[in-house]
């Protein structure tokens, strides 16, 4: 469970102070599929970094599974990321010239999972992410955009995190493959009860989630249940 209390983030450069997040508070329960939506410059990326334990708030508290992670050191944050958070990035960020399986097992290496279990876990995650089996031994640069993003999703899943953070996961994809990726998230949320936070600036993408948090100029403007949820067309093609 995620609990943000009065989170404020201020960036200082010289004497200038930029307030990026202003007293943001919200809760996300386990198994929720939430979209955080806002235009560029709204502070949604900063919020994602704080939620993803990549950054700490200037003030306020952030509880992840009842643990306050808002004032941890860099290496303590790394441990939180290792065990609790899975990232999916817009640019996939796969290891180049490395096989699909190696990319997916990478987080397990840092989590200290024994070598024998890694392959098994990676295969499970690849199946959940809908990655066709015949592509598992391909190198990452031999895949299409949609496939690369599904490898990235499998990598986010592989260590059973409490939270999957997807930062504009469809930003580099065409609408058809974007749809497939969104369908993958919906499936993971429904079937595996994964908690997913989707960060996007597109309303269309956000409407695939169950709840939408609108953010603008560092403040939450609207936080409501998505009444007209879109169901992505699940297609096994591509």
């Amino acid at each position: 469970m995620i609990d943000c209390k009065h989170i404020t983030k201020i960036y200082k450069s010289g004497s200038d102070e930029t307030v990026v997040l202003r007293d943001v508070s919200f809760k996300i329960n386990d198994g929720e599929f939430v979209a955080i939506m806002g235009p560029s410059g709204s502070g949604k990326s900063t919020l994602m970094h704080i939620l993803g334990a990549l950054d700490s708030p200037t003030s306020g508290q952030y509880f992840l599974d009842k643990r306050d992670v808002s004032s941890l050191s860099d290496d303590e944050l790394a441990v939180v990321r290792k065990h609790n958070i899975g990232f999916v990035f817009q640019a996939y960020n796969l290891l180049k010239r490395a096989s699909v399986l190696r990319n997916v097992t990478l987080p397990l290496l840092y989590a200290g999972v024994p070598t024998r279990q890694r392959q098994e876990k990676a295969m499970e995650a690849l199946i959940s992410a809908g990655m066709p089996k015949d592509r598992w031994h391909y190198l990452s640069n031999e895949l299409s955009g949609g496939q690369m993003q599904r490898v990235a999703i499998a990598r986010a899943l592989v260590n059973n995190p409490s939270l999957i953070l997807a930062d504009e996961p469809t930003g580099n994809l065409d609408s058809v493959t974007g749809e497939i990726v969104l369908a993958t998230f919906q499936k993971l949320n429904q079937e595996k009860k994964c908690t997913i936070i989707l960060i996007t600036h597109e309303l269309y993408v956000a409407e695939h989630a169950d709840r939408i948090i609108h953010i603008k100029d560092g403040q939450i403007t609207k936080d409501e249940k998505n009444s007209k949820k879109r169901n992505a067309i699940i297609s096994e093609k591509n």
Binding site: L54, D74, D75, A78, N93, L95, P107
Partner: peptide, 15 residues
């Protein structure tokens, strides 16, 4: 970018 990714998925400074 690769270093950033490794850090995001939990690599410590020491790693």
């Amino acid at each position: 970018r690769e270093i950033g990714l490794r850090k995001a998925i939990g690599a410590t400074k020491k790693d």
